[in-house]
């Protein structure tokens, strides 16, 4: 696989998405709510007497939303990636170029992964700064940085983002319209949402070790997803069965 080819595909997609506002906005809305809205809830709770005990658990639970955010942010782009080419009828000329399946898929994945993970990092930066600002007086120390947020941002979020990108590119290569691709694409959030709910009801504890195990599981699932995406990308089927 030639990375320069994949980058050419990705660069074109970046250019396209900057001109498609609906896709561009889909990157931001969740991150804005989580990174700016939730610290104000934390601020409200921190101002209540006795909140010092409950505050760390709440902040940890909220910070897990950056894993969900990393999976949600690329949905719009990745779901559009191949079905968008189909809708514009540009897939046949693209497949006629001397570009391999791997290069096309890698380009589409890069185009969805990089902006999503960048926005997620920016959101997390704002979130951690605001949380420290709002909780310093209550906790008498800076809550961030800590190991949990490092694992979330540098392991879990990229892995979840990759999983979402892979799954959505897979969906995008199998359906015929953008709306269906996006609706099916958001299903990837269900297992991550379940982890969040289980942590909220204290069935699952989100600590360093449990998150490392989660990251290891995600690595395996990502590898399987990568194989599935490659195996199911059939040029002939895409060209002859898509109506």
């Amino acid at each position: 696989m030639r990375l320069s080819k994949a980058w050419t595909v990705a660069s074109k997609d970046f250019k396209t998405y900057t001109k498609k506002k609906s896709i561009l906005y889909s990157l931001f809305y969740f991150e804005v709510v989580v990174s700016i809205g939730l610290p104000f809830i934390i601020r409200f709770i921190a101002s209540k007497p006795g909140s010092v005990v409950a505050l760390p658990n709440l902040i940890d639970a909220f910070s897990f939303l950056f894993v969900i955010g990393a999976a949600l942010a690329p949905v719009g782009i990745a779901a559009y990636s191949l079905v968008g080419e189909k809708v514009q009828k540009s897939l046949e000329p693209l497949l006629a170029t001397p570009t391999t399946d791997e290069e096309i898929l890698a380009g589409k994945s890069i185009a969805a992964f990089l902006p999503a993970i960048f926005i997620n990092f920016m959101g997390a930066l704002i979130f951690t700064v605001l949380v420290d600002l709002f909780t310093y007086n209550t906790l008498n120390s800076l809550y961030y940085p800590n190991w949990e947020i490092a694992i979330i941002l540098f392991l879990l979020a990229p892995m979840a983002c990759l999983l979402s990108v892979g799954y959505n590119v897979l969906v995008s290569s199998r359906v015929s319209d953008v709306r269906t691709a996006q609706q099916l694409g958001t299903l990837i959030l269900l297992p991550l949402g379940a982890v969040y709910v289980l942590s909220e009801v204290n069935v699952l504890t989100l600590n360093t070790s449990s998150m490392l195990i989660m990251a290891a599981v995600l690595v395996v699932i990502d590898a399987v997803m990568f194989y599935l995406v490659k195996a199911t990308f059939q040029r002939e089927e895409i060209l002859t069965k898509w109506k």
């Binding site: 074109k12 250019k15 396209t16 001109k19 498609k20 514009q88 009828k89 540009s90 897939l91 046949e92 000329p93 693209l94 006629a96």
Partner: peptide, 9 residues
């Protein structure tokens, strides 16, 4: 191709 298939944006 039978469809022009250009990137409209």
């Amino acid at each position: 191709a039978d469809n022009v298939g250009l990137y409209e944006e």
